[in-house]
Amino acid sequence: MGFKLLSKLLVYLTASIMAIASPLAFSVDSSGEYPTVSEIPVGEVRLYQIADGVWSHIATQSFDGAVYPSNGLIVRDGDELLLIDTAWGAKNTAALLAEIEKQIGLPVTRAVSTHFHDDRVGGVDVLRAAGVATYASPSTRRLAEVEGNEIPTHSLEGLSSSGDAVRFGPVELFYPGAAHSTDNLIVYVPSASVLYGGCAIYELSRTSAGNVADADLAEWPTSIERIQQHYPEAQFVIPGHGLPGGLDLLKHTTNVVKAHTNRSVVE
């Protein structure tokens, strides 16, 4: 069995187990497998329904001669939608809004960016022009300005110390501490036991640490421990890039980060 097929099978099995364990909360999309990078042309966006009122959005972007996937989250909030992270750029984010209108038909009224990198804030200006209120932590807003990236308009308070959590509509926002970046936030959907790890969490097929220019490698494993301790009931975990899975993604990420750190020390 090929690795790609095995990865998709694991996603399907995880979703099936969740649907059985929580039949009222989960209505997993039966329309197909989780979209992969090879299936999404740059400039297009796919939506994948995880649970009743919960979707991931998947886009792709060219970077350094390669094409990478990027995940975000959409959560229903009454007759409105909360968006977590842009679709990595203005063109993708405009396509995301169009796809949401086509498939869901509810307005996106608020959006949260989970850290300051372009795959999370690139497209904020498109959201703002569409009347979406954009939010991020003060740290993310400051770092985005320093980096020359787009800056969300509103500040999220109460997320300055490791372990801080605040309720934001249908989700809980959690600051686990520094990891992929010093400002990275985690998003949890309690009604569906869905954990969105953003770039602080890796997919299972990833074996290298990737972009760690703004990471705190020493603190990252401790931050992941905080996530595990705060959300032990999480059933569906979405990484910032690639295929979702279960809580095993947290341990896998820790292993990859520690291996990278150990290699760096040896070198």
Rank of each mutant, 00 (worst) to 15 (best):
A129G: 11
A25I: 14
P152C: 00
L185T: 04
S191I: 09
A136H: 04
T254E: 14
V54R: 02
F26Q: 15
Q61I: 14
D85M: 01
I151R: 07
H260A: 13
V212E: 07
A25S: 11
S162I: 10
G89D: 03
G32K: 07
A130R: 13
G246W: 04
I74F: 05
N184S: 03
S62Q: 07
S7E: 09
T261M: 12
E80W: 05
G122K: 07
K251Q: 14
E219F: 07
T14E: 03
L5G: 07
A144S: 11
G177T: 01
T253R: 00
F236Q: 09
Y34A: 15
E267D: 13
A178Y: 07
I100T: 06
L250C: 02
A94G: 11
Y231T: 00
H241S: 00
H252L: 03
L6W: 09
T86P: 01
T222F: 14
H117R: 02
V266P: 11
A165L: 15
Y12C: 13
T253E: 00
H180I: 01
V124H: 06
Y188L: 01
P35E: 15
A95C: 04
A218S: 13
I84R: 01
G123M: 04
L96V: 04
L173Y: 04
M18S: 13
P41A: 13
Y135Q: 00
A111V: 07
H260M: 05
G246Q: 10
Y68V: 15
I58G: 04
L81S: 03
S30Q: 11
D64L: 09
L127I: 04
S113Y: 02
G78Q: 09
D248F: 09
L250G: 00
T222P: 08
A87M: 00
T86W: 00
P176C: 00
S38T: 10
G89Y: 06
V212Y: 06
T86G: 01
V166R: 11
Q49P: 12
V112M: 07
G78D: 13
G163V: 07
V28W: 07
K258S: 13
Y188R: 00
A133L: 13
V132G: 01
S137P: 06
V212H: 07
A90G: 12
T207I: 15
D118T: 07
A213G: 10
G43A: 08
R142L: 13
F3V: 10
V166C: 04
G78M: 07
T253Q: 01
L9N: 13
M18A: 10
G197E: 02
A21M: 11
A234R: 01
E147P: 05
Y135T: 00
K91L: 14
C199E: 00
